[in-house]
Amino acid sequence: MPSLGVSESACDSCGRCLVACAAGRVVLAGALDSAWPGQALLRIDGPAPPPRIRLCRHCATAPCVDTCVGRALRRDQASDTVKLDPSRCVGCYSCVMECPFGALLPNPDGGRSARDVPIVKCDGCGQFAHPLCAAACPTGAIRAAADGRSASSRARRRRAGLLGRARRG
């Protein structure tokens, strides 16, 4: 998938990303192979300017992966994303404590859904080429950056420390 660029200062809290993520997960269930159909995998805390976009940046050196005690969070080299395997997640909240973007979300549906998953996070839209949230964002707050599959740009992003150019504050 293309990397995601997030710029909170451009966000006007319209919420289209949330709808696209949740709805897209139902419509494209097969293609996305999502563990969380019908649920938005990001959150906007706002509208206080700038709103906080709680969306996984798929960090190259990801603190959540470092801290995952059950090997549930892994970096997937093939897709260049951070993946959460819900079947291995024990709900210890360590990742919630480590993510500087607040992108690991305690599952509001936890305990009620068939899959009792304690934590949800962006799955990078699986193998689907266009992140749904970026496609729906009218302001450029969430952008699908230029396709970064080439080794050199991957290395560049690694040096930058984060996948995508995350601007904070």
Partner: peptide, 9 residues
């Protein structure tokens, strides 16, 4: 506890 990571940063 959802804000923990933001606060830690």
């Amino acid at each position: 506890v959802m804000d923990a990571g933001l606060l830690q940063a």
